[in-house]
Amino acid sequence: MTTHEHGQEKRSKADWLLFVVGFILASALGFWLTPTILYAQKAQPFQFSHKLHLGEVGDEGCKACHPFRKDGSFAGIPGVEKCKECHSDDTLGDKPEEKVFVEQYVKKGKEVPWLVYAKQPSCVFFSHAAHAENAGIECTQCHGDHGKTETLRTYEYNRLSTYSRDIWGKSLMGLGSPPNRMKMDSCADCHRENGVRDACFVCHK
């Protein structure tokens, strides 16, 4: 009987090691597998340097190309019409991307099918005016230093929900920033912290 008891004791310790191994292996698999199976990647139509452009527009900053409309709504990504304020039928520089843009879009009168990193679903009403104008939050707080990037990162989207990966956040655990996580609970957390209403109709339509 004693040997049996002894064996049991000895074995339980090693078994718990197996538990830990199983735990580590499976969670590692989970961490590795999740983004692989969930996210698909798409390339932007062509490369674009925000850094270069931000340098050209001067003090106006982001709003030079991403302005508010007169009715207070946010214009988002500019159309080719806006780009044409500077880019005519001739290229301004010698970058191959600009040539692609001028040849394939400006001259053909086509819009660029940009993939939008921060696109929210249709049931969400996000007021840029309330955040950027009323609360004075910097663009970078949510969008990160997008303006300093020289290339566009690969657009990743969720195969199931079709949302951009930026909505959940780059980190699978919902940590890390910027760009900030843009899920409903992150909105609600910030609203609560700042004593702003978080009723349904504040952000939904």
Partner: peptide, 18 residues
Amino acid sequence: CTFCYHRYQRAKNKAFLE
């Protein structure tokens, strides 16, 4: 019916800007 709440949202946008 939502009392056209989206119109209130848009009206507030304008008020924020102006």
